[in-house]
Write a protein that binds this DNA or RNA. Structure first.
Lengths: 241, 241
DNA sequence: CAGTGGTCTAGACCACTCC
DNA sequence: GAGTGGTCTAGACCACTGG
């Protein structure tokens, strides 16, 4: 159960063992793992040592602790993650909730680039979505989304207006796919014609382009998404210590 | 010495006390703070409690620990921080070191915007620098820099070619000013004429604009800097958990 | 070698949550 | 009230650094 490498401190070996069990899906995101004392007994270590292992996983964002309730496998909240890149406060400075509109949906096959991004063989069946995100009815972002058909087949059966404003909760309820991690790549470019049209921008308008890949617990890519937004609305702040 | 607030756990009170002493400059960046045992004795707590306070400050990036050597006030390494935004690998994929060229330097007075950014009264004496960053001799970034004259007067006396490739080490050696933190704001726009010229770009070329404010230990702004780089060379990756 | 941080233990008591 | 994590203590031993 524990990595037998005697060179590693006990708490790290416990940490690795727990991380592996989490990745293997022994506990689903949102579920509680055993209490400190139970873990300590199981691994034959002191409670403080088990605690240190847990603290490491909390720091990594894999677990969440709540006093009096327990330690839980973290559910990522990717709610309006992408909107942190764009100004969207109302007249009173309050943050506004974006809505979503599904413009198109179709079955497709992975080309070379998509296959690489989703770690699939070329030609694998995929589902493509074209979606608009709006603030107070005004288009802010256009999104092209690709997911593997094998995991996401229910998305094709769903009524178009059953897609809500947030996709990741739908992935979970409709397809049982849970997003736990994301990588985003940011660049600037010109809007392709269909994007410019969807965003009500002039052709070749400058846009910020965010390419996002999201991953499941097991590290497999779940979705690849390219989002376009008007460059002049883009705004991002970074703190460095 | 310790915050008297009995509601806070001891380790947090120690943490606050140490953070205040660091901010007050009791130990300079790079210097060691007292050993765990000494701190524990001084604060009347157990070693483990002092250790927990230290761990918090390490997590915040204010301290660094080295086994067998001690615990040190962190020196920020802002080396080529900004270049993480721009592609600049050579033909062999190896990272390239940018060089710098000081194009202009002059004494000035803070206008309203600058005064706000540097937390100075309007009209305070400042020094402005205009600088070019190059990769293999090709201009990559143009930078407009403003610093308060009071802290940075030696920069005016310095020979223009005594400015090296990195400014922050110079701030420290020539002016005794140590940078410990930064905030960057990223946006997208068109190059003003003098910037386009410096970067050898067509007028109004699309550029990424990074506005950076850097801060001293005591939280006072030390420098405000606007950097411009060609938008098509911009590229930034973010991992989210 | 002395001094430092790193690991580990064992147990006490507190604070919070939920039944 | 039972069970959970949060704080705190006290001390042991190890691993690394530097003179």
């Amino acid at each position: 159960m524990l990595a037998p490498d005697r060179r590693l401190p006990i708490y790290l070996r416990i940490q690795d063992a727990l991380a592996a069990e989490i990745a293997a899906g022994k506990w689903r995101p949102g579920e509680a793992i055993p209490a400190e004392e139970a873990l300590a007994k199981r691994f034959g270590a002191a409670v403080g040592t088990a605690r240190k292992a847990i603290e490491g996983l909390v720091a990594q964002g894999r677990l969440e602790r709540h006093q009096g309730r327990g330690t839980f496998v973290r559910r990522a909240d990717f709610g309006n993650m992408l909107f942190r890149f764009f100004r969207h406060t109302g007249a009173d400075g309050a943050p506004l909730r974006p809505t979503a509109k599904l413009l198109a949906r179709r079955k497709s096959k992975a080309d070379a680039a998509t296959a690489r991004r989703l770690a699939l063989p070329v030609g694998t069946a995929t589902i493509e979505l074209f979606r608009l995100r709006l603030i107070e009815g005004a288009p802010m972002l256009a999104e092209e989304i690709v997911v593997p058909h094998r995991r996401f087949a229910p998305l094709l059966a769903l009524a178009k207006d059953a897609f809500g404003d947030l996709l990741y909760p739908l992935y979970e309820t409709a397809c049982g796919q849970i997003v736990v991690q994301a990588r985003e790549h940011l660049r600037f470019g010109q809007a392709p014609p269909h994007i410019a049209k969807a965003l009500c921008l002039p052709p070749k308008a400058p846009v910020a382009i965010v390419e996002r890949t999201v991953f499941a617990v097991d590290g497999q890519p779940l979705e690849f998404r390219v989002s376009y937004g008007a460059a002049e609305r883009f705004s991002y702040t970074i703190d460095i210590k």
